[in-house]
Design a protein around this nucleic acid. Structure first.
Lengths: 108, 108
DNA sequence: TTCTAATGTCGCAAACATACGTCATTAATC
DNA sequence: GATTAATGACGTATGTTTGCGACATTAGAA
C-alpha cells in the first residue's frame, strides 16, 4: 500500500463532472433542457428562481464541461443538451458505480 | 411554463450527492474502501496525499451523507462503504440519467 | 443610423469549501 | 494511575462558488 503522490486524472475527471451536478440550479437546467425542444437562454432564466446573470453563469459552467451546447440564432441563443457529454457522464459514473458497489458477500 | 419558486427536494438531493463526489480525495476514499476489506482511518490518511486532519473531514462528509459508515474497534475506527447509501446514489443518478439522456430522434 | 432587446462579461460581497496545526478525548498498555 | 496511540473537534487562513447589479456587445427593427 503506497502513498498517492496526487490524485489521478480519472479521479479528477469524476470530481469535475460531479461538481457540475452539485448545484440544484444546474440539475434544473439539465432537466428543463431535456423536457423542451427549443430552449432559449431567456426562457431558462424566466423559469428559474435566479437572476438572468446567475443563470448565465450556470449555463457557462455546464457548457464548459461539455454537458450542454449553445447555438446562436440571431439575437437569441438556443441551448441544448450535448449528447456526447451526457453519454460521457453516464459512462464515467457507471464505471465508478461498478467499482464501488459492494457485493453481498463482502465483509463489512 | 411557470416560474419555479425554489428548487425541489429531488433536485436538492441529487445536488447534495453530487457535491459529496465533487472532490478527488472523496472519490479516492470510496475506491480505496471498495478495494480493501478492513479500512482503518489511519490507513486511509497514510495512503492519501493529505494530512490526517483533512482526510478526517472528508470521511466525516462522506459519512454524514450516508455513503460510508464508521465502526469503532477499540482505539481504531474502521470505515466501510455503506451499501444502502451507495445503492441510493446509484438509483438517484440512474433516474437522472434516464431523464436527461437525449434520444436519437430528439431535435437539437 | 438610431433604438431596443437578448445576451454575455466584469467586479464585488457574502457564503462555503479546503487544508492543516493544535487541542481534547478515549482506549489500550505499562 | 500515568503514558502512549488513534482519532475527532476546533479555530483559522486561504481559496472557490454563488448571486447579482452595472456595463458591453451584438442583431434586428424602426
Amino acid at each position: 500500500m503506497k502513498k498517492l503522490e496526487l490524485f489521478d486524472d480519472k479521479q479528477q475527471e469524476i470530481a469535475s463532472l460531479a461538481k457540475a451536478l452539485s448545484h440544484p440550479a444546474r440539475i434544473a437546467i439539465l432537466q428543463f433542457l431535456a423536457s423542451t425542444p427549443t430552449c432559449i437562454s431567456g426562457d431558462i432564466s424566466d423559469y428559474l428562481p435566479l437572476s438572468r446573470t446567475t443563470v448565465s453563469q450556470h449555463l457557462k459552467e455546464l457548457k464548459s464541461i461539455g454537458l450542454i451546447q449553445g447555438d446562436v440564432e440571431g439575437l437569441k441563443i438556443k441551448y441544448c443538451l450535448n449528447k456526447e457529454g451526457i453519454e460521457k457522464l453516464n459512462h464515467v459514473f457507471g464505471n465508478l458505480f461498478d467499482e464501488i458497489t459492494p457485493s453481498d458477500n463482502k465483509i463489512c
